[in-house]
Amino acid sequence: MKKILILGLLVSFAACKGTAQQEKQENFPVTKTEAEWRAELSSEEFYVLREEGTERAFTSDLLNNKQKGTYVCAACQTPVFKSETKFDSGTGWPSFYDYIEGNVAFSSDNKLGYTRTEEHCATCGGHLGHVFDDGPKPTGKRHCINGVALDFVPEAP
């Protein structure tokens, strides 16, 4: 009985471990070593983009940004969201109802004991956030994104 219990616990822990970053290193056009990413990114950017962390709610400078422009991946500058799809979700993270097709990739995340859809940059694999089915029309999606994973490029005047 003890062996079955121990085996069950090991399987449970393994199921909760995220593997998206490990897969990303092999499957994305821009790949760098951990040391290279650490040299280029701030500690908070590295935590979110490379270790799939989450920034604290309501701390992003981009949360209340209302300028027209494009949000790009902070690691590789790939355009991932347009300002016209941004909305105030009240969650404390920049939220978008749509993404730039081909520039955002998705995977399953089971780290909290249930499956969520993780969102990451399709060019470098950087973790951006998660997508949920409680957003506004026309898509009904809420792309809940860590602001530290993004840079903002204002629209040219």
Rank of each mutant, 00 (worst) to 15 (best):
V48W: 05
D61R: 13
D133W: 03
N146F: 10
K3Q: 14
F58R: 05
E40L: 11
I100F: 05
G125D: 08
R142F: 07
A149W: 05
C144V: 11
F106Y: 15
T31M: 01
G8F: 03
N146W: 01
H120A: 10
L63G: 06
D133Y: 03
V153Q: 15
E34I: 12
D109W: 02
V80N: 07
T70Q: 03
K66T: 15
K2F: 08
Y114G: 08
T59F: 15
D134C: 04
D133R: 11
S60F: 06
H120T: 09
A14Q: 09
H130P: 02
G92N: 04
F46A: 07
S107E: 14
W37Q: 03
E51P: 02
A35V: 08
H130Q: 11
P29I: 04
L9T: 14
G125E: 01
E119G: 13
N146P: 05
V72W: 00
I4S: 11
G125Y: 03
D134F: 11
N65P: 13
T54Q: 01
W93S: 11
W93L: 04
E44G: 05
F81K: 01
V153N: 14
T91L: 12
F46Y: 15
N146H: 04
G125W: 07
A57N: 13
A156G: 04
C144H: 14
H143C: 07
I100P: 02
N110I: 03
Q22M: 15
D151E: 12
Q22P: 04
Y71V: 00
V48E: 00
I4F: 00
P157K: 15
C16E: 08
V148Y: 12
F96L: 06
R142S: 10
F81A: 08
N103A: 07
D151L: 09
T19W: 14
P94I: 02
H130N: 03
S95E: 10
A105N: 05
A156N: 12
N64T: 15
Q25T: 11
A74V: 04
S95R: 10
E45M: 07
S43A: 15
C76Y: 12
K86S: 11
G125P: 01
G53A: 09
K86F: 15
D133P: 14
A149T: 00
T70Y: 10
L62F: 02
G53L: 04
T31V: 07
E84G: 11
S60H: 09
V80Q: 00
P29M: 04
N65E: 14
E55R: 05
N64F: 15
I100E: 05
L9A: 13
C121N: 00
S43F: 05
V148S: 05
E23L: 12
V80A: 01
C121I: 00
Q21T: 10
A75L: 04
Y71A: 02
G126R: 03
Q22C: 08
N64R: 15
L128T: 02
A105D: 06
V11R: 00
P154R: 12
L150A: 03
K68M: 11
E101T: 14
H127D: 05
L128S: 05
A39V: 03
N103Y: 01
R50F: 02
V131G: 01
T139G: 11
K32I: 08
A39L: 06
D98L: 12
Y99W: 09
E36W: 00
L49K: 01
E101K: 15
A149P: 00
K82D: 10
Q22H: 15
G113S: 09
I100G: 09
C144Y: 11
F96A: 08
